[in-house]
């Protein structure tokens, strides 16, 4: 009996540790997903891209193939913005990135340029986490400061893409360090 118990416990602990490790990643993704959602709340896509009255789904594209889409999907499962259900898709450069409403370039994407060039002048909200992203006219730069996630916004880039960012969001944006 004791042995079983011990075994179970060790399983549990290892699961926990694993999950913790897994959880930590998971958790980070969840938070990011939340931010993506939140940011989207304050962005306005042109009507050609996202009809105000319709209910076609919004496409959140995640670049890379790290398996993040599953976590993101889970995090954004039931959420919708203005009746638009959020769909998550992992994308590569080869994909038609212009169909995305939002393009998320996680940290591991070292060269955001090609992604950015692919959606330039397309109403796609680009959210990155690298400096390079921000330098290369990425629209919203997510960074951590003091253990908190902050974001900086390149308003012109958004404007060029035909996206309108709400003042409140802009107000909340920080300057990147």
């Amino acid at each position: 009996m004791r042995f079983l118990q011990l075994l179970t416990k060790s399983v549990f602990i290892s699961a926990l540790l694993l999950s913790q490790g897994w959880a930590i990643d998971h958790r980070e993704l969840t938070i990011k997903a939340a931010y993506l959602f939140r940011l989207s709340l304050f962005v306005e896509w042109p009507p050609s891209k996202l009809s105000p009255t319709g209910s076609e789904p919004m496409l959140f594209c995640v670049a890379g193939n790290q398996g993040m889409s599953e976590a993101l999907k889970t995090a954004l499962a039931d959420k919708s913005i203005n009746q638009h259900k959020i769909e998550v898709a992992e994308v590569q450069l080869r994909n038609d990135l212009s169909a995305c409403h939002l393009l998320y370039l996680p940290r591991h994407i070292q060269t955001p340029k090609p992604f950015l060039q692919a959606v330039v002048s397309h109403p796609v909200l680009t959210v990155g986490e690298t400096e390079a992203f921000y330098r290369q006219d990425g629209m919203i730069y997510l960074y951590t400061k003091e253990n908190r996630i902050r974001f900086a916004i390149n308003e012109q880039a958004a404007k060029k893409a035909g996206l309108e960012l709400r003042a409140q969001l802009l107000h909340l944006a920080d300057q990147p360090p």
């Binding site: 939140r38 709340l41 304050f42 709400r166 409140q168 969001l169 107000h171 909340l172």
Partner: peptide, 12 residues
Amino acid sequence: AQAVIVFGDKDE
């Protein structure tokens, strides 16, 4: 307060 609340920005 939408953004503030959404982003939980206490200061703002």
